[in-house]
Amino acid sequence: MFDKRKGNTEPEVTNPAQAASPGESSSFNTRSTAMIGKTIVVKGNITGDENLVVEGSVDGTIDLPNNDLTVGESGQVTADLKAKVIKVDGQVTGDIQGAEKVVVSKSGRVQGNITSPRVTLEDGAKFRGSIDMDPGDSRATSTPTKSSAGRSGADDSKAAAAKQEAS
């Protein structure tokens, strides 16, 4: 398993579940959009019913259950975020809940936990934390007992030999 390795190239596999469907070329809706500019600092809780772009600093919470939230490249957010679609081009420290989708772009930096049915990390994105792609169901699956990747007997012999040599 994993015996073919590629260099630092774009991944070839595209998950259909994560690809935009026709008519969905942009995940962001066209409702009116508010903006927190680069020099603005907000400490507190933000709620509302329009889309929001944060290019400044926010320390608190942002809750836009029916709208889209973008943390722009210059945005620095230390807050828990809730919105329908969340795109991070800047820095976020905090938990992120996207009802539909969360995208951390190549310039994005996130430290926290992401919960959303669809999560995309673009190549170059920096992320540390957990990602839960099944927020609606916490039912655990029993750990399977089957052996791992289907391997041939020859592989096992080689493995045993390697194990012996290595030790």
Partner: peptide, 27 residues
């Protein structure tokens, strides 16, 4: 439903691969 710990940084390929499961992944 599976829970995965990756000792490395967040990774686009791994996340895309794991999205076939109802995964919770810790980077």
């Amino acid at each position: 439903r599976i829970t995965v710990l990756d000792l490395g940084p967040g990774n686009a390929e791994t996340l895309r691969f794991l999205s076939r499961f109802r995964a919770r992944v810790y980077f």
